[in-house]
Structures are given as structure tokens and as C-alpha cells.
Amino acid sequence: MSTPLFHEHLFHDSAATSEFAVRLSALLHPGSVILLEGGIGAGKTHFARSLIQARMAVSGVVEDVPSPTFTLVQTYDDAEGEIWHADLYRLTHPDEVDELGLIDAFEDAICLVEWPDRLGDLTPEHALTIEFSATKTEGERHARFICPTPEWAARVEEALT
């Protein structure tokens, strides 16, 4: 695997984070995996919700998109296939990830994974990682993008412009 490419961006409010998620959603395809890192309240679920709602809207579906904190995984069907939104916070061992079916989904679904540190050695090498952190300004988020391939770097750059 090549050396990851890093990008950083400051989203000035939650609307800017949502706009980025909407633009990035159009650039995804089955097999796209996004790992969402950051503490509680950093903006992971807000980003995932915006991205999923944008994908569903293309199919004419309005979706509520609840946090999968208690269900661990929520799945959605859009025009291209499945979207998996996973929150692994409550997992205690990487073996539990396989039981959820998430490993197979990495190959043929769009996957958004919160708390990806729980994946351990099961972390897909081809995944985009977004590290979110809140700033002292209400609604403002700093994002650090770790792009494992030039293709991911190009998608991030396109969605940021």
C-alpha cells in the first residue's frame, strides 16, 4: 500500500459539515469504506446521517437515519446497493465485528464506521479515515482526512471544493 495522503479542513458550522457529506456521497460506490474517528460529540454521526440522507434522497426516499449506537448497525438500500452505518463503540473484541457481517459489507456496500479502533486487524486498508474534533467555537469541526490512495485524495478534494 502507498503512503497515505493527509488533508485537513475546518468546517465552520454543522451545515458546512453536512454540505461536504452531501458532495462526498455522490462520489461513493459499493466497496467505499469511511472510518469515522473522534470523541463523543465530535460530529461523526452528524456527518454519517447527512451522507446517508443525501444518498437516499437521490432515490426519492426521505430517511430519518437514527444513530446505530444501540443496534450497532443500520442498513439502507439506495439505487446502487446497500449502505451500512455501524457504531462499534459497545464492542469489546474484533471477533464481534465478523458476527455483524461487516467484513463482507466492506466489499460490496458503502460502509460508514464509527469507532473504527474496535476493528483491530480487521480494518480495511482501502478505507478513508476522517478524524473529527470539535473546536471551541459552537458547531465548528476540524477534520483530518487520511487517504490511503490517490483516488480517495481526489474524491476528498473534489467534495471540499
Rank of each mutant, 00 (worst) to 15 (best):
F132S: 02
G81N: 05
I103Q: 04
G43F: 04
L24A: 01
Y89R: 01
A15R: 12
R118Y: 06
W115V: 04
L112H: 04
S25W: 01
R23W: 00
R155A: 02
S50R: 09
L100N: 05
A57S: 11
D87I: 06
E131C: 14
D87F: 08
I103D: 04
P68F: 14
G39H: 09
F20Q: 01
V22H: 07
L27K: 06
H7A: 07
S50H: 12
F145S: 02
F70A: 10
A42R: 00
V22T: 10
M56K: 13
Q53S: 15
S67G: 10
F132N: 01
G43Q: 06
S133P: 03
P150I: 13
E80Y: 13
R141H: 07
E140F: 11
S67A: 11
P116E: 03
L88E: 02
T17A: 08
S133T: 06
F145H: 03
E82T: 12
E140S: 08
G31Q: 00
A57Y: 02
Y76L: 09
T137D: 14
L122E: 05
H12T: 11
F145A: 02
P116Q: 09
Y89I: 01
A86D: 03
P66K: 14
H93T: 05
K136C: 10
D108P: 10
R90V: 02
D87E: 11
L35S: 02
L100P: 02
H9Q: 07
V58I: 15
A48H: 04
I40A: 07
V97N: 00
D13S: 10
T71K: 11
L128T: 01
D117K: 09
R49I: 09
L51G: 03
R55A: 10
G60V: 05
H9E: 11
R55S: 06
D117C: 10
A109G: 05
D77L: 14
S32D: 03
R55F: 09
S14I: 14
E151T: 13
H93G: 01
E63M: 12
L160V: 00
G60W: 06
G101C: 12
S67I: 03
A134P: 11
E151P: 06
T69Q: 11
A143E: 03
L72D: 05
A21D: 05
D117W: 08
L122F: 12
F20M: 03
E63R: 11
P4Q: 03
I52H: 06
P94C: 09
V62P: 04
A26D: 14
E157M: 08
A105Q: 02
F106W: 10
V22M: 12
V97P: 00
M56C: 11
E138P: 14
E138M: 15
M1N: 10
R49P: 08
G60F: 06
P30V: 00
K44N: 11
S32T: 00
R55K: 13
T92S: 13
I110Y: 02
P68D: 15
T17L: 08
V156W: 02
L28H: 02
T45M: 09
D117R: 12
E114D: 07
Y76T: 08
G101F: 06
W152V: 01
E82F: 15
R118H: 05
